[in-house]
Design a protein around this nucleic acid. Structure first.
Length: 509
RNA sequence: GCUCCCUUCGUCUAGUGGCCUAGGACUCCGGCCUCUCACGCCGGCAACAGGGGUUCGAGUCCCCUAGGGAGCGCCA
């Protein structure tokens, strides 16, 4: 019953997302001739929907996607949801959202494993018939005892094949185990790790069907990769040790062995395993924090991969230059500082119109309505070189849209002093008289006041800046005045003059 | 514990036996530019985990040690 409800939900989500996301749902049915499939590279990303898309998963997806794109192949998304307890529809949603934001479009999928139980059972039955799998009714207690005993004797815990020839009654509760070869070796010829050899004596008879009848990971992965004609399996290196078992199952099934590439993991900035305490781990958190997808992608691709000394890559360059063979073997630590630098780079070089579109929601979060102010594109142009993130850009642009409450203490102390009063008063007069409020005239205006008072431009511009912005940093003074607008400028200069006045009174008292 | 994997500046990396006096990037520190903040430009600090071999020659090949990671589930 639970299973059925679950299926129903998945189908619902599937349909809904297809409608919502729009991307990545093109089905390349023309690939169907099996022969043609074998000739083209087919990669997949196969997350289990038990949480959001984190940066490690995103990089795995990226490498897989690049490998497929580079070779003109197909990139397939498969949802590994056989763990009915932990899989959720929200997670599926979050993963698809993350991939869409990053622009990792898939050619086929999302395919759900929960929809393929019949096929897994078919394969398991086939293995049973061929004597390559068997029923086992060993109790949890027995298995635990086995494990404890092995550990105590400094051995690797292995199932002892106790039920191999016991012919257990199909009607009693049981699991099904794969009969692993007893001797010989399995060689994994990995595209990044090189040749890794395992002794079959290290492996045991793993469970492929649970007591409740559901198939387990190592079986489903093998069946799916094979059925979907995956030519290159690119995944995290936590799966390296599963690979020999999977190869053995594939061989028992008489199926072709795909090429493997096991990617090193991504660690937090302190060198320990990435977790929530490292701040942002979900790719959507990066969106919320004002990162551009191209920056995150560029950062992620350089984690473990390089092309000489090149740091900046366009998507086209990546597809052209990426080579899975150049991927490092060792784990790397996530460094937010460098990501910020890349983000700034992409903000700097982005099209202002495009950026304006992305900035709007971040202004919205500060309860600013971008239409109640100057052209947002002008704001973006003015701030493009001084923001590391869109969040920062919104924050440093707040003064354009509304009056600040207090002057920044240090800035006011330094620039809003009695000596600045004359400059501010002159500026006020001059601005009041100005008929065309544009950058050029505003620039002339500040310059003229400086000259007439025989002051360096900084002596006028800085007090003026603090008066109008509230703090000591902003775009060029002319652009700043222009964006704030005449009315607000005059109002704020008055406020600054009042501040100076008050300060003078206090000094006397 | 056992099996497998990994190890170049703080971080990401270049390096495929002589091009290495170990290069680039981020960070940091100086300086220039400048109306501020940024941007940009110039300069600086900083690494081959340790020990044995092989070789005329080792960051690069081999072995050992140390450190780190993963797997050893009726999780994926």
């Amino acid at each position: 019953m639970f299973l059925n409800i679950f299926h129903f939900l998945i189908v619902l989500i599937d349909n809904k997302l297809g409608f919502l996301s729009g991307t990545g749902r093109i089905r390349h049915t023309f690939y169907s001739p099996a022969l043609f499939r074998k000739m083209t590279k087919r990669t997949r990303f196969a997350p289990s929907p038990t949480g959001y898309l984190h940066v490690g998963g995103a990089r795995t997806a990226l490498f897989s996607w690049l490998h497929a794109r580079k070779h003109g192949g197909a990139f397939i998304l498969r949802i590994e949801d056989t763990d009915l307890e932990r899989s959720t529809a929200e997670s599926v949603n979050a993963i698809l959202e993350g991939m869409t934001w990053l622009g990792l479009e898939y050619d086929e999928g999302p395919l759900y494993q929960t929809k393929r139980f019949d096929r897994y059972n078919e394969v398991i039955d086939q293995l049973m018939e061929q004597g390559l799998a068997y029923r086992c009714d060993c109790s949890k207690d027995r298995l635990d005892a086995l494990r404890e005993h092995a550990m105590a004797h400094k051995e690797k815990p292995r199932y002892d094949s106790h039920c191999r020839n016991r012919n257990i009654d199909p009607d009693t509760p049981h699991v099904i185990r794969f009969r692993n070869p007893d001797d010989g070796v399995v060689v994994v010829d990995d595209m990044v790790r090189g040749r890794v050899t395992y002794n079959n004596s290290e492996l045991d008879d793993l469970i492929i069907r649970r007591t409740d009848g559901s198939p387990t990971y190592n079986l489903t992965v093998v069946v799916d990769d094979s059925d979907m004609n995956i030519s290159d399996v690119i995944r995290g290196d936590d799966h390296l040790n599963n690979t020999p078992r999977q190869i053995n199952i594939l061989q028992a099934l008489n199926k072709e062995i795909p090429r493997y590439a096991h990617l090193p993991m991504i660690l937090g900035d302190d060198g320990t395993r990435l977790s929530k305490r490292h701040g942002a781990v979900s790719v959507m958190q990066y969106m919320e924090q004002g990162f551009l997808p191209e920056a995150l992608l560029n950062y992620l691709v350089r984690l473990g991969w390089s092309h000489g000394d090149q740091e900046i890559f366009s998507q086209e360059e990546l597809i052209q230059l990426f080579d899975i063979a150049n991927v490092n073997k060792s784990a790397s630590s996530f460094n937010t500082e460098k990501l910020l630098w890349l983000n700034q780079h992409y903000i700097k070089s982005a099209d202002p119109y495009h950026l304006a579109h992305l900035l709007s929601p971040h202004l919205g979060r500060l309860a600013i309505d971008p239409t109640e102010g100057p052209d947002i594109v002008e704001v973006v142009k003015a701030q493009q070189e001084r923001a590391n993130t869109l969040v920062e850009m919104a924050e440093i642009s707040e003064f354009i849209y509304r009056d600040f409450d207090e002057f920044d203490e240090n800035a006011a102390k330094k620039h809003l002093r009695p000596v600045a009063r004359q400059a501010l008063e002159e500026m006020k007069k001059s601005l009041q008289a100005l008929t065309s409020w544009d950058v050029e005239h505003l620039h002339d205006c500040v310059e003229q006041v400086s000259t007439s008072l025989d002051l360096k431009m900084g002596k006028v511009a800085q007090p003026l800046r603090v008066a109008v912005v509230g703090r000591a940093a902003s775009p060029g003074i002319d652009v700043t005045l222009y964006l704030v607008g005449k009315e607000a400028c005059l109002r704020r200069i008055d406020k600054a003059l009042a501040y100076i006045e008050k300060r003078e009174q206090q000094a006397k008292a």
